[in-house]
């Protein structure tokens, strides 16, 4: 994202108060993440410390500091989904998408992106769709009653070509 695009976003917000979240949201939506140089540019533009923008960016789960893939697969890890097998779904997704199995961060969260940037795999606490547990979301579509074996068919709807060279 270049300076001109960021300027356009900032100009949409006339007041100095309350614009930061709006600006960051627009950047996240357009770029798919908050690029570091965008944060550095905005810190100067909005006359606020970089540390504050970084703080905001790391506080809200909506923001990511790394580029997400074209499709974002979010597995619900809420209580109902968890007891209905969400961990096994994550495990299968990690193998199907060939992303670092078990590479979770210390806080139990993860954000894994495929080498070709087609998919990102991440988790969420609850979608409020517990009656369909276990649930996963791809972009804005929710899939309920998911089993590991149903996942390839779901992924194919999002142009997933599969791991032909590996047999699961």
């Amino acid at each position: 994202m270049d300076a001109a695009q960021l300027d356009t976003i900032v100009e949409r917000y006339p007041g100095a108060t309350g614009r930061v979240l709006g600006v960051l949201e627009q950047v996240q939506r357009r770029a798919g993440y908050l690029p570091r140089d965008a944060l550095e540019y905005l810190a100067r533009k909005l006359a606020m410390p970089l540390s504050e923008l970084y703080s905001i960016a790391t506080f809200y789960s909506f923001f990511t500091l790394e580029a997400l893939g074209e499709h974002v697969v979010t597995v619900c890890m809420g209580t109902a989904c968890h007891v209905n097998g969400a961990p096994r779904i994550v495990e299968r997704l990690e193998r199907l998408l060939d992303v670092g199995a078990g590479e979770t961060t210390g806080d139990g969260k993860f954000q894994l992106t495929t080498a070709d940037h087609a998919f990102s795999l991440t988790s969420a606490r609850c979608f409020g769709a517990c009656s369909m547990a276990p649930v996963l979301r791809i972009d804005n579509r929710i899939f309920g009653y998911v089993t590991p074996d149903k996942i390839p068919a779901i992924l194919r709807q999002f142009d997933w070509e599969g791991n032909h060279h590996r047999n699961y």
Partner: peptide, 10 residues
């Protein structure tokens, strides 16, 4: 007036 540090995460 420096703002070198802040909270990170949640």
């Amino acid at each position: 007036g420096a703002g070198a540090i802040n909270y990170i995460g949640r």
